[in-house]
Amino acid sequence: MSNIHPLDTRKSQSGEIDAILRNLMGIQGVSAAAIVDNDGFVTHIQRDSEINTDAIGASVQVVFGAAARAAQHVGHHATNMVICENAEGFILSTPVEAGFMLALVTQRDALLGRVRFELKETIPVLKKLFSHYLTH
């Protein structure tokens, strides 16, 4: 039987979420990794420079929401990822659970396939972590 107290469980899950974000930051060209809740609030973040978290959180939700709506209009059903290609890099956002999103900001030299692969592989785990995290 586990002797781990629920509060510790939540803490370790939150710690693991931070570890996942740190791992994403280790990929070449990634400059920020964040979890954004459904109100656009950044709940977890790792970054290598200052970012306006309020603005980026809301923008990520708004851009993802608009893209998901556009996808529905053309019959594409669920949106798994939105990739924003910019002059100086990419912003990738992926839904996690209960309106939470994982967002990555990269520099131009990031390898898109590498970042996208890591995101795709990370999401199932994050979904599980979040469903535990939110119910404890």
């Binding site: 459904n38 656009g40 939700q61 708004v62 851009v63 993802f64 998901a68 709506r69």
Partner: peptide, 17 residues
């Protein structure tokens, strides 16, 4: 909401903020 879907509350929250 028609345009932004789940992004709508976030925009409204940000406006209020």
């Amino acid at each position: 909401e028609d345009i932004l879907g789940q992004g709508a509350p976030s925009l409204v929250y940000h406006s209020g903020q």
